[in-house]
């Protein structure tokens, strides 16, 4: 499960500051004012710049996205424009196009826009991984990956949406109590409902018209891109000593990729939710 990771440091200090609501709102406002330049505008913009200038800006964008991706937090277009692209905004489409090419050609990663409305990007692994190839180099793995995998499995096996209580009950059976501080995960409830949600592994939404208020979980965008349903089914099969094909509906979904767009290869990336984020 451990394959790709990025520069291995991960601390959320500056990150958590960035997450504060006021900043988010401000960035959303920014995004409204940022209109995608037309192709003729881009063309004219490029004529005013030297190729070296555009390359330099592209490199900055690549590095910025890599650094942000260490913490698995999606990068917003507004934030990218405001912090890095700045005066180059007229050639923004060209810069993003080049950045995408570099991620694919150099890093074997794919820059994906997960939310076309709010313009958010994440990086996913773009390399095919033959199943047999375990890396000879030990990569530090994140204990939270296991927790996430269990939750995604429950959601998938229950048809895609699960009430919050069902998740907590499953975790309790595994001796992970959301009400208690866990040795490895810390505040479990917070990890699940905030961290995994922020990283877009999970969606956590209120169920309308319930009293008292109830929430439900779904797979997030990143999970769709990175986690292989076939692999989850394989895992469930081993757990229950049952042929994965006996869950016919799940099997069909896992192997036609109806709602998931990715194949088994990208499941590798799911594991790298970075190391020292504790």
């Amino acid at each position: 499960m451990t394959q790709r990771k990025r520069p291995s440091n991960t601390l959320r200090l500056s990150q958590s500051k960035r997450q504060s609501n006021s900043v988010m709102t401000q960035e959303e406002d920014e995004d409204v004012t940022f209109t995608q330049p037309s192709s003729s505008q881009v063309q004219r913009g490029l004529e005013k710049l030297t190729p070296a200038q555009v390359d330099q800006k592209t490199a900055e964008v690549v590095q910025y996205i890599l650094v942000k991706d260490q913490k698995k937090i999606p990068v917003r277009r507004a934030e990218l424009v405001k912090n890095i692209v700045k005066d180059y905004r007229t050639v923004y489409p060209e810069i993003i196009k080049r950045a995408k090419r570099i991620f694919e050609q150099v890093f074997g990663l794919k820059l994906v826009e997960i939310d076309p409305k709010n313009h958010m990007y994440i990086l996913v692994n773009n390399l095919d991984t033959p199943a047999a190839a375990a890396s000879p180099v030990k990569c530090p793995s994140n204990p939270k990956t296991g927790l996430l995998f269990v939750i995604l499995s429950v959601i998938f096996m229950k048809g895609g949406i699960v009430r919050e209580n069902q998740i907590w009950n499953t975790l309790k059976k595994l001796r992970v109590d959301p009400g208690q501080r866990h040795e490895e995960f810390g505040d479990v409830r917070k990890v699940v409902t905030e961290e995994f949600v922020r990283q877009r592994y999970l969606e956590y939404t209120r169920i309308p018209h319930t009293e008292p208020i109830e929430y439900e979980f779904r797979w997030g965008h990143r999970a769709d891109m990175e986690v292989s349903k076939a692999q989850i089914l394989e895992f469930m099969g081993q757990l229950h000593e049952q042929d994965p094909r006996s869950w016919s509906q799940q099997y069909r979904e896992a192997h036609t990729g109806s709602s998931s767009s990715q194949n088994a290869s990208s499941s590798q990336t799911s594991s790298h939710a970075s190391t020292s984020r504790k």
Partner: peptide, 11 residues
């Protein structure tokens, strides 16, 4: 690319 990705993980 795979070599680089692993280097990104382990540093």
């Amino acid at each position: 690319r795979r070599f680089l990705q692993t280097m990104m993980t382990i540093g």
